[in-house]
Amino acid sequence: MRIFDPHIHMSSRTTDDYEAMYAAGVRALVEPSFWLGQPRTSVGSFVDYFDALTGWERFRASQFGIRHHCAVALNPKEANDARCREVLAELPRFLRRESVVAIGETGYDSMTAEEDEVLEAHLALGVEHRLPVIVHTPHRDKKYGTRRTLEVIAESGIEPGLVVLDHLNEVTIEMVKESGAWMGFSIYPDTKMDPHRMVALLQRYGTERVLVNSAADWGRSDPLLTAKTGAAMLDAGFDAADVDRVLWQNPVEFFAQSGRLDLTPLPGFALANAPETFSGNSVRRGGADATVPAVPEAAR
């Protein structure tokens, strides 16, 4: 199983996670910018964070055989703080970096006027830089917030195919599918979406334009839930090609629109298994190429 996690916050995870992810088949990921659990209060802390995502974190991932890309944005919560909003002026210089493959996560938290403005600004940057946009849908008023997000996207003039709406569920999937945007699902241990509910949605709505991510961060989350969802798909009768489509080809297709994805194996690491080598063999899942070379001291 080869896996591309299209939404995971690795800077809040440990090297044990990188090792386990590689063993499970993760070979590439996108780390969207988000808040740090504690609100930032100045532009400088964003700039350093973006530097870390495009520098240190990318290097750290590479030590474990995983291609790291990122997305930059002012996140919805901090969009409400005037001291942070100035970071919008800093985004274009980061959007030119080769490791930045998207804008995000943007979207709504509390659906304030400030969040409206910042979402519109990010979508305009997507049009201008021709980059995909990762849009977070709100937790609290999700159905209404998702509908409103789709209206803002339609007004922005961005191609729906350049946008993923993330953290969808049973109630919001249909309107996003109809809009032509990509549908993102964050698989969590017990809240947003679980592997079995995800499988049920794939059975009902198909695999086209669906992205499955772990959205793992500093909260209770599991970076292997992408792999576990793949296993649940196989158990439910999907074949290895379907799993590969959802966990690899779809995110590749979405982020390749940036023209910047680098999916060549890192020196000293192997490609993940092609799907046919384990077709019908769930026992070997993720186990065939699990050896991770020792991490050089310099990486620590």
């Binding site: 609290r140 008023d141 999700k142 159905k143 209404y144 569920n169 049973e170 109630v171 979406m193 509910r197």
Partner: peptide
């Protein structure tokens, strides 16, 4: 209305 929408999500999620 917000509560009813959230209850709908919770029920849909089992």
């Amino acid at each position: 209305r917000m509560a009813a929408d959230l209850a709908e999500e919770r029920e849909a999620a089992g």
